[in-house]
């Protein structure tokens, strides 16, 4: 029991399960899955499908946060990649051609990769604080997207492109395959190689890592590049879902949702140890919460309030201060420690 309680995934999973249970009690149809024409439908399937863009962004964010960084630009990068892809398709003579769509997707994602590399350059080489370095692109990115679309919301008709977010393969949404593939690739890359532990080392102690011979510059740079690439892919999914490139609305606030998902999953914003499984759980939790809010008849616009409540609960539960207060209440150990710094270490 104690080991389960201590597991980092305990609280995130508990939150997700609680949400699902509450939903099921409120409307038993929540967990029902129907088959229509060989395709699965139901609220749970919707959650899996709709969570795909957030999943991609949150994966990248996890890696960036592990290096002690943060990437605020993901929403803007999504807007750019969507704008690039749709502008290419719109301008082509054959919007329904598979080749056209592939080129559009590849170019859109590559542009996003370039933006990620730019962020990484500012952070890893120039040495600018991550919040500010990525704030630059967060501010400028949507402007760039607007310039690409000429200030309009580009809409297209292209069946292959539509398939990205709305198609089905073997009964399941294609978007789900994309996000799961991303999870698997990132997990393999981080945990089957030494990339994960080296990333954690850099996040925990950059200078010690450098002196130990870790190529921290490359690792940090790579993290931002990966985040850009994944955000680009998310932008493709997003624009494919609405079949439009909306530079203002695409990926709005997704950086915040992604950061939330990462934190919910038990990865500290201070960098270091990270949990991809936690992030996956965090993404599903947020998506379920959003669907719950919609189901409750709350206007989607009010949903941030509920997200805020969740954030507050989660960070308070994670807060060492609250935990120590609780621990003290139960054990009546020792009087108040007035120096939060000195905390656990024994000074001589």
């Amino acid at each position: 029991m104690k080991r389960i309680l201590k597991n980092r995934l305990f609280w995130p999973v508990l939150a997700l399960v609680a949400l699902i249970v509450i939903n099921t009690i409120a409307r038993p149809s929540f967990i029902s899955i129907t088959v229509q024409g060989g395709q699965l439908y139901g609220p749970l399937i919707d959650i899996l499908r709709n969570s795909a863009p957030l999943m991609l962004v949150a994966l990248g964010m996890t890696i960036v946060i592990a290096t002690r960084g943060i990437d605020l630009s993901v929403g803007a990068v999504m807007a750019v990649s969507g704008a690039v892809a749709l502008t290419i398709i719109e301008g082509s003579s054959d919007p329904n051609g598979l080749g056209t769509v592939l080129v559009a997707i590849v170019v859109g994602v590559l542009v996003a990769l370039v933006l990620g590399v730019w962020n990484g350059f500012l952070v890893a080489v120039v040495g600018i604080q991550p919040i500010i370095a990525t704030l630059v692109l967060m501010l400028a990115g949507r402007g760039i997207a607007l310039l690409i679309t000429g200030g309009f919301i580009t809409t297209i008709n292209s069946e292959p492109y539509k398939f990205m977010a709305q198609g089905y393969v073997l009964g399941l949404p294609f978007a789900l395959y994309v996000s799961m593939a991303a999870v698997v690739v990132v997990a393999l890359l981080e945990r089957r190689t030494a990339l994960g532990v080296l990333t954690e080392a850099v996040g925990i102690n950059p200078e010690a890592s450098r002196l130990a011979g870790v190529r921290s510059r490359g690792i940090i740079w790579g993290a931002y590049a990966a985040s850009g690439l994944l955000a680009g892919l998310a932008g493709i999914l997003y624009s494919s879902n609405i079949m439009a490139a909306d530079a203002n609305a695409a990926g709005l606030y997704i950086e915040l949702d992604a950061i939330l998902a990462v934190v919910l999953g038990g990865t500290s914003l201070m960098g270091g140890k990270f949990s991809l499984a936690g992030t996956v759980v965090g993404v599903f939790t947020i998506q379920t919460l959003k669907s719950t809010i919609t189901f409750l008849g709350v206007p989607p616009a009010v949903s941030p309030l509920f997200l805020a409540i969740v954030v507050v609960i989660v960070v308070l539960v994670q807060s060492p201060r609250l935990r120590s207060v609780l621990a003290r209440a139960s054990q009546a150990l020792r009087p108040r420690n007035s120096s939060p710094q000195g905390g656990s270490e024994v000074a001589s």
Partner: peptide, 17 residues
């Protein structure tokens, strides 16, 4: 000990809602 970024983010969500 919540980071200012997260704490004010929560307040931002709350106020917007």
């Amino acid at each position: 000990d919540v980071q200012p970024f997260i704490a004010s983010l929560a307040a931002m969500f709350a106020a917007r809602g």
